[in-house]
Design a protein around this nucleic acid. Structure first.
Length: 569
RNA sequence: CGGGACGUGGCCCAGCUUGGUAGGGCACUUGACUGGGGGUCAAGGGGUCGCGGGUUCAAAUCCCGCCGUCCCGACCA
């Protein structure tokens, strides 16, 4: 393709409000333009990258036996009512009506629709099945941001596995994990697999592929010594052992006028946070619930959701709390509470001689023995870990890393096959409900992440495999006949050698072509100019390392191939 | 949704406090020169100043409302 025929509107100035480097560069180099918040037009350069990214993903999906399909984006609301997710998804799902008033939605994921296709499976002999697609997803994000990193309309490669039993699902899950690792390696994305929460998709095992990056909005908790890595919402740490001296036979009243916080009690009454029980009142799917964590531990909302299977949680209002417990936040406790459910963090298990609120303003209790004095309905891991706490596997202090989620795989269970009626006959002739897995990669986000990882001050620097073109041939003068024809010839030769080539034949000064080639980030540049041509050579330059070589015309293809291979990252 | 900022040719912005016929840079068009790291000169084209209302002899500027975009806090690929 020739630059003179290609729409590459590069800008000389950065967009004003770009917060992520990838966004700034993708806009400036003419890859994308915003239409409205969270919706972007992909221009020709972006489409070239996107096609290559899709090719990589497709080849790996086919490699593990995936079959590509394409399911509608616009879907009847009824199918989401069947699965029970119409309400769960809430405001995040775009809804509309057709002219007859039929309720429709724009798909934000496709479990329901693939499960519908799955109803035609009839025998265990048909399983496993891996089905996938590249399809637009619509999500009414509350706050789109950072260019392509967080949008409301995007392409997702989503795949779904159907197996007869858990052992089969485990195998399918591992196949996808392997495929994902190869995909991100081939895309030049240094993704690390981490344990994750499965959110509102429903399911058990869940692994996110996270790429460390400044622009990231997630925190990965990682052990520098072993391979432990988890999303902050899921991460745990080894508990520093606390030895409790046995306390009195019953809780003791302690008047604590004015003491409202963990810190107040620590400072004024010598009750350190690790000896306190923090009582939080949450409304979990409408049910007022006491949530207990150690005084010095923060509550993880996501863990609470995961532990309770709730779809919605919120902190209780002060008046709700006062009505239920007769005291205000700051003096709350679970001792003797039986009319409200109590859920407690594992770190409180077996603890004795603790302090907590007495449900009377300005009064606390000490000498509280958790097992003896509190009726705990459910124990769960509820606390959010803090940087530096010991690794749960090896004890090394954990580190926090900002990261972007580029892929997510999880085991779904039978939620959708059950609700949508997928069933096959097993070897014994009895009906079996297949078990599903679900696996996603955000295509445009992956593009942005590659840009985020591979750029420098001069612009983008795409890895060869996904670059909008492999080689850029610059005709440094279009008026010099020898230069022009040599560039044309090289262009044809390189294309003939099977390379993806651009020819910059614009009537602009050489400096513009150099800058644009670097800004756009094409891995190898071949400069044809009168000066070198007089000696029968051209200049071949690698984008990533800036290495330049003067190469005779006959050796250009070979040299280009070498440099391209060196820039697969 | 809560808090903050912004909206002026295609892009980046000045002008607004103190109302008086809309400016600069980049880009674009034409011509000449130039030609290995974002050229020079000359001549041009292009703007309902986000939208609606109000105040005023007069509004980009002051007031009210709305819309849009961005940034900071709770979710996702």
């Amino acid at each position: 393709m020739r630059w003179s025929q290609l729409h590459i509107p590069t800008l000389r100035e950065d967009p004003a409000d770009a917060d992520a480097a990838s966004h700034r560069l993708l806009v400036r180099a003419g890859f994308i333009r915003q239409l409205m918040a969270g919706h972007y037009s992909l221009l020709p350069l972006a489409m070239r990258v996107r096609a290559k990214v899709i090719d990589v993903i497709r080849s790996e999906m086919n490699g593990i036996g995936g079959q590509e399909m394409l399911l509608p984006s616009m879907q009847p609301a009824s199918i989401w009512i069947k699965s029970g997710r119409l309400n769960v998804m809430g405001q995040e799902m775009f809804r509309l009506k057709d002219r007859r008033g039929a309720e429709m939605v724009l798909g934000m994921t496709h479990e329901e629709i693939f499960a519908t296709i799955g109803t035609e499976l009839s025998s265990y002999r048909d399983l496993p099945q891996f089905w996938y697609q590249f399809q637009t997803k619509f999500r009414d994000e509350p706050r789109p941001k950072s260019g392509l990193l967080r949008v409301r309309e995007f392409t997702m490669k989503d795949s779904y596995s159907f197996d007869v039993d858990e052992a089969g699902l485990d195998k399918s899950f591992e196949l996808h994990r392997g495929a994902y690792e190869r995909i991100f390696a081939r895309l030049g994305i240094p993704a690390i697999p981490v344990e994750a929460s499965s959110g509102n998709m429903g399911g058990s095992d869940s692994v996110e592929f996270m790429c460390p990056a400044e622009a990231g909005e997630d925190i990965v908790v990682r052990c520098p010594d072993c391979d432990y890595a988890a999303n902050l919402q899921k991460a745990t740490s080894a508990l520093t052992p606390v030895t409790d001296q046995s306390g009195p036979a019953a809780p003791q009243r302690l008047d604590t006028p004015g003491a409202r916080t963990i810190e107040d009690l620590d400072r004024d009454y010598q009750l350190p946070g690790e000896r306190q029980i923090k009582t939080l009142v949450q409304v979990i799917d409408g049910q007022l619930t006491l949530v207990l964590v150690r005084g010095d531990h923060p509550l993880s909302d996501q863990k609470l959701i995961d532990a309770t299977g709730a779809t919605e949680i919120r902190p209780a209002h002060p008046d709700e709390i006062r009505e239920a417990l007769g005291a205000s936040p700051g003096s709350l406790g679970a001792v003797g509470v039986t009319k409200l459910p109590v859920i407690a963090d594992l770190a409180l298990q077996g603890r004795a001689n603790m302090a907590t609120g007495a449900n009377t303003d300005d009064v606390h209790l000490t000498g509280v023995d958790v097992d003896r004095d509190i009726t705990v309905g459910q124990w769960a891991d509820l606390r959010e870990v803090t940087e530096g706490e010991p690794c749960p596997r090896c004890g090394t202090p954990l580190e926090f890393v900002r990261a972007i989620e580029v892929g997510h795989i999880f085991k779904l269970g039978r939620k959708y096959t059950t609700s949508l009626g997928v069933s096959v006959l097993g070897p014994d002739g009895n009906a079996v409900t297949p078990i599903m897995g679900s696996y996603g990669i955000g295509v445009e986000r992956a593009i942005a992440v590659i840009a985020e990882v591979h750029h420098d001050d001069a612009g983008l620097a795409w890895p060869t495999q996904v670059a909008p073109a492999e080689v850029n041939v610059l005709a440094l003068s279009v008026t010099d006949e020898a230069v022009r024809t040599t560039a044309e010839d090289l262009y044809a030769t390189l294309q003939g050698a099977g390379l993806d080539v651009l020819l910059d034949d614009r009537d602009v000064r050489p400096g513009v072509k150099f800058r644009d080639s670097e800004l756009v980030g094409i891995p190898v540049r071949v400069s044809v100019g009168a000066r070198d041509l007089a000696e029968g050579v051209v200049e071949v330059t690698g984008r990533a390392d800036g290495r330049k070589d003067r190469v005779p015309l006959s050796g250009v293809t070979e040299r280009v191939r070498e440099l391209l291979a060196a820039q697969i990252r």
